[in-house]
Design a protein around this nucleic acid. Structure first.
Length: 623
DNA sequence: ATAGGGTTAG
């Protein structure tokens, strides 16, 4: 990577290697030298910037710096390139080597470098990427701004606030913001973004509401803040207000709106955005295209997602990962693997997130050997260190396929301590394959790490219920009561005419509840004629009613399903999004409804899609 | 002559 010291002493010796790397840079250098333009600070700065954008050419770029510059321009250009480059930590070294006192530009680039460093440290989960302590970097950049008297520069100020935000330190961002005498709209937006990034969207909203002037970026920041914490409904409501306020709607906003639609499974709204893009002749950028792929995937329309994907001129790792993940979610394991291979062939380096997606795809489709090969290739072929999530995926892969022994052996062979996700995967596998002993074992391990995991308790209870062990069910219920573990209430959502209706377990608050009740009665009757019997095995104990069948029929997806049958025209598929996993009974029930009512039903649960048609489900009853 | 806030995958 870095050229040997001998080459650094004699830059001309670098030229052949430079040529091998990129002949056009060498030609450009020669041209600039001969024409005398390298003496011009702006040309030199531009050339330095282009050199410094590659780590390989960096040392060469440094040699071109004028020894006694009359201006900081060339140095600042180098700082800027380093800050934007793959190793932003290098900007710190360059900053220390400045032969002149830094100006407000230099400080700005230093702060940007610190931001990039903080962001990459957060992403990589390791602070050692540049040999600089990632937690000290922002403080020292901020300190340098104060030390050199540029802390009052508005560009530096907003940079410092968003730097602390990138580090995830909202308190430090607040403190820095409090120091600003007259924060302008940019600084306020940076503060708003810092609060939102820290998860405190309500505080962000207060800042937003208090702004004397809001430009489109401020609107975007607030909308994105809601999306960030999953409050997509409020995001869309704010987007409506934004349009009412006459703010300019651009790409960034629409990306956030698409993400909100994806979260909610709001296909109509998502399609509306897509139509808007087309009617305005907007170019589908990588980001926008990725958001579209994600939206269609999360609404269960894989075909359109892939059409958008194939039509994109440029795709990055986000785009590919989004598409791979979309196929995985929809249970298309083979297609998912094929796309992953295409990604490899296209020379796009997969990362940890990509592997989570492929492994999940393999797991959903029961492709055990293929998944194992992917896992092994992570480190060997791609240099990606497995995260705990990947180990969890592997346990899931073996476990779902019924290879419980392999799953246990895999856990025992793990080089790191298993986390709750690993035991959770084993617990779920025990449920699928009715292994009470293993389930108890997994839950014990899990509770030792995280004693209040509601989903884990529910899983164990379901294992007991499957084997008619009502004492076991009661025991788990008692454990939850004693520990105060609350089950997350289930909800299902369905979009009708662009409006998303939400149903909660046993909820009767919908304005059309009377009709829904009638429809439920009709459904139950027609299903019973087909031999349906409420499956009372997996009774979730959020319902205290005695009558088990009655309780089960009130699960939120059934309410949503009944409403869909009433409110959506015949022949139109019913799309339901729910926050938890579908229970066995609702799954059986929905399969039958798809047959008896001759409706296609697409249900997104916490983990994946179920495409019901003609009495069968795309998950092949394997989830 | 160089610079700021908002956008994509689990």
């Amino acid at each position: 990577m870095t050229p040997p010291a001998a080459l650094l002493r004699d830059p001309t010796a670098l030229l052949p290697r430079l040529a091998a790397a990129s002949s056009h840079l060498r030609a450009l250098h020669a041209h600039l030298l001969v024409s005398g333009r390298l003496a011009s600070p702006s040309h030199l700065a531009a050339f330095l910037a282009s050199l410094a954008s590659s780590t390989y050419h960096l040392s060469y770029a440094r040699l071109l710096l004028p020894p006694r510059p009359a201006t900081l321009l060339a140095h600042n250009a180098l700082l800027r390139a380093l800050a934007r480059g793959p190793r932003p930590g290098l900007a710190f070294a360059a900053f220390c080597d400045l032969p002149l006192p830094p100006d407000h530009y230099s400080l700005n680039f230093l702060v940007r470098a610190a931001t990039a460093l903080a962001a990459s440290a957060a992403e990589e989960r390791s602070a050692a990427s540049s040999g600089v302590d990632a937690r000290l970097v922002p403080v020292s950049a901020h300190g340098a701004a104060v030390r050199w008297g540029h802390a009052a520069d508005p560009h530096v100020q907003s940079g410092v606030v968003s730097m602390y935000a990138a580090l995830g330190d909202a308190a430090a961002a607040r403190a820095a913001f409090a120091e600003i005498a007259c924060p302008d709209v940019v600084c306020v937006t940076a503060m708003l973004g810092a609060l939102a990034a820290g998860g405190d969207v309500d505080a962000a909203r207060d800042v937003f509401d208090g702004m004397p002037r809001r430009d489109h970026v401020a609107w975007n920041a607030m909308i994105a803040g809601y999306v960030h914490v999953g409050r997509s409904r409020e995001a869309l409501r704010l987007f409506d207000k934004m349009q009412g306020a006459g703010a300019a709607v651009g790409e960034a906003t629409l990306v956030s709106v698409l993400t909100a639609c994806a979260q909610m499974g709001a296909l109509d709204r998502g399609k509306w955005v897509h139509g808007l893009l087309r009617s305005h002749g907007m170019r589908i950028s990588v980001t926008l295209g990725t958001a579209l792929v994600d939206m269609y995937s999360k609404c269960g329309v894989v075909v359109t997602a892939m059409e958008v994907f194939e039509g994109m001129g440029e795709r990055n790792v986000y785009t590919w990962t989004g598409a791979v993940s979309g196929l995985a979610m929809n249970g298309m394991g083979t297609e998912c693997l094929d796309l992953f291979k295409r990604m490899e062939n296209a020379g796009i380096q997969p990362n940890g997130v990509t592997f989570v997606a492929v492994l999940r795809g393999c797991s959903m489709a029961g492709l055990v050997d293929e998944g194992r090969a992917c896992f092994d290739s992570m480190k060997d072929k791609h240099g990606v260190d497995p995260w705990l999530e990947h180990y969890g995926c592997m346990v899931d892969l073996y476990g779902r396929a019924g290879r419980l022994e392999d799953a246990v052996n895999f856990i025992n062979a793990m080089p790191v301590k298993p986390h709750e996700g690993v035991w959770g995967a084993l617990l779920n596998a025990s449920r699928i394959h009715n292994n009470v002993e293993l389930g108890k074992y997994a839950l014990d391990k899990l509770l030792a790490i995280e004693s209040e995991n509601d989903a884990a308790h529910v899983l164990l209870s379901n294992i007991y219920a499957e084997s008619q062990n009502w004492n076991g069910v009661n025991r788990v219920r008692g454990m939850m009561k004693a520990k105060g573990v609350k089950k997350v209430p289930g909800w299902s959502a369905i979009e009708v005419d662009g409006k998303v209706h939400e149903f909660f377990v046993g909820g009767k608050s919908h304005p059309r509840y009377k009709e829904i009740e009638l429809m439920l009665a009709e459904m139950n009757q027609r299903l019973r004629l087909q031999g349906y019997n409420a499956n009372t095995k997996e009774v979730l104990f959020d319902i205290e009613e005695e009558e088990k069948e009655g309780a089960i029929s009130m699960h939120s997806e059934k309410l949503a399903l009944a409403f869909g049958l009433i409110a959506l025209p015949e022949g139109m598929e019913i799309r339901i999004v729910k926050n938890l996993r579908v229970c066995r009974d609702c799954h059986d029930y929905t399969k039958l409804v798809s047959k008896v009512f001759n409706r296609e039903i697409i249900m997104r649960d916490r983990n994946r899609f179920h495409h019901f048609k003609g009495g069968a489900c795309s998950c092949r009853d394997y989830w």
